[in-house]
Amino acid sequence: MDLLARAFPLLIDALGMTLFLGITSFLIGSVIGMTVALARLFGGPVLRAIAIGYVSIWRGTPLLIQLLLVYFGLPQFGIILQPVPASIIALSLHAGAYLAENFRAGILSVDKGQWEAAYSLGMPFPRAFRRVAFPQAARVAIPPVGSRFIALMKDTSLASVVTVVELTAVAESIGSSTFRYLEMFAIVAMIYWAINSLLSLGQEVLERRLARAY
């Protein structure tokens, strides 16, 4: 109990940091992912090649290496980033590569006839996408996107490697100073699990709402 009392304030701050890293990276990653998906599906050959290359590299290399490259590698080019921005950049680019594929699959699942119906009403592409294709694509993309959000929440623990004080880092530091590793890691594991249970719940609610018409 003594341990908990000592750890509690630190854990609360760390939880805030974990949530901040996860949510920010998810939002930025979603923007990147949607942009890359659209470039891949509707862009010219150059945009398509860039999109394919981006997904291939950021999905094909370990997140830890990406994080180390951004934090320790970029300074050699004179780009020195603080630990938190560096982590957000690496996590966003990593998640963006996966989300691009989730969004692309969702958009591809929309029947060709839906586009034709939208066009036959005189809609230009952006409106046909927003009004007709996107809502149907979202329904298909939500389960994998939800999984990616959950994976991303867990991936934030790697930020501890570049000295970000988030849940994992706090568990490690309290653990090492008290030798109560078991308790500390068990506690943060429970916290990650709780966060992700809430995310799962949110995903389920969203899925059910979008399925109402079907």
Partner: peptide, 21 residues
């Protein structure tokens, strides 16, 4: 697009928007 608003289309497979009433 202007032509499409004047010449409306009814499709073999309806192509109703499933997410709209």
């Amino acid at each position: 697009r202007e032509i499409r608003t004047r010449a409306a289309m009814v499709f073999q497979h309806f192509n109703l928007f499933p997410h709209m009433t």
